[in-house]
Computed example of a mutant assay.
Amino acid sequence: MTTIDADVVVAARSARLARSAHRSFIRRFLEQRVAVAAAAVLFVIVLIAAFAGVLAPHSPNAQNLRLVLKPAGTPGHLLGTDNLGRDVLSRLMYGARISLVASAQAVGVGVALGFLPGLLAGYLGGKIDWIVMRIIEAIMAFPPIILAIAVVAGLGPGLTNAMIAVGIVFAPRIARMTRDATLGVREETFVEAARSMGLGRATILRRHVVPHILSPLIVTVTILAGMAMIVEAGLSFVGLGAIPPESSWGTMLSGSIRFTTNSPLLIVWPGLCIVVTVVCLNLLGDGIKDSVGREARKKVGR
């Protein structure tokens, strides 16, 4: 059998194993009712955010000073109005869009900055690994919120800049996770076989390493997405995130804190949305982690 034929056989076998592993993972994940329920809730939140323009009963910035601080249940305003007479439900729907996009931006920046260095450090080792780890340790030595505030202060206020700052904070954690996962995969038999057949490093990483570290990466992304939402709310609360009249959940918290005496529910709604979304993201991450973990334990047992 020629080298090319062997390569084709190994690639086909790897593809069959990958499809089998994916089916097993989906089956195990569907057995976890809590994680499935969390995924369903997140799906509904994403749908509401995507179709906020259709579902929202009012414009999120439409003011009516005759209907200031109306309680929940007011005709035409299911969750009441804020201090400027804006519909709370509509602002929550549009706020979901802004908060989810902001969270995705932060995680995207973190993956873009941290994934490749972690992958190369874990696979190549040696000086590359040493340099990457020293950079990671230097960045992680700073308190995350202080580092994020420093980046925002340098780039200027605004939601995008705030999420870039959060992504920079997340990048070392993603790089370390990717490195650790790659260290475990690079010594596997199928990687050794690919090396012995003369495949290049780029091909081995693309075909054999990256597909096997996607599951822990997804777990990390779900957890960091929840953290990003909390950090975005905190930065918006202190005026370093979304700029009013943008109706992110963080800005809604910031704008309603002064009216807790007259309208206590005004601060409850955005806080509840943040809590539900973050909890569901963490439950989803736990479900994925448990499914992957059980597969890993089965492999070790065999």
Rank of each mutant, 00 (worst) to 15 (best):
residue 83 N to G: 11
residue 44 V to F: 12
residue 136 I to L: 10
residue 66 R to Q: 15
residue 240 L to H: 07
residue 286 D to K: 00
residue 241 G to M: 07
residue 144 P to Q: 12
residue 210 V to N: 09
residue 171 A to T: 01
residue 288 I to P: 04
residue 138 A to N: 04
residue 261 T to A: 14
residue 266 L to W: 12
residue 12 A to M: 14
residue 288 I to E: 07
residue 76 G to S: 14
residue 28 R to H: 12
residue 47 L to E: 04
residue 240 L to W: 08
residue 18 A to M: 12
residue 115 F to R: 01
residue 126 G to Q: 07
residue 28 R to S: 10
residue 151 V to H: 05
residue 57 P to Q: 01
residue 62 A to I: 00
residue 122 G to C: 08
residue 106 A to R: 03
residue 54 V to P: 02
residue 58 H to S: 02
residue 28 R to Y: 05
residue 31 E to Y: 04
residue 123 Y to P: 02
residue 270 P to Y: 11
residue 184 G to P: 01
residue 80 G to P: 11
residue 275 V to W: 11
residue 13 R to P: 02
residue 11 A to N: 15
residue 114 G to R: 09
residue 32 Q to C: 01
residue 42 L to R: 02
residue 117 P to S: 10
residue 204 I to R: 11
residue 95 G to H: 09
residue 64 N to Y: 04
residue 33 R to F: 04
residue 51 F to D: 01
residue 143 P to E: 06
residue 228 A to Q: 08
residue 40 A to W: 06
residue 193 A to C: 12
residue 210 V to F: 15
residue 105 Q to P: 00
residue 133 M to E: 14
residue 221 V to S: 11
residue 16 R to L: 14
residue 19 R to P: 04
residue 136 I to A: 04
residue 298 K to G: 05
residue 179 R to A: 10
residue 43 F to R: 00
residue 93 M to N: 03
residue 154 G to T: 07
residue 8 V to Y: 09
residue 193 A to H: 07
residue 49 A to P: 02
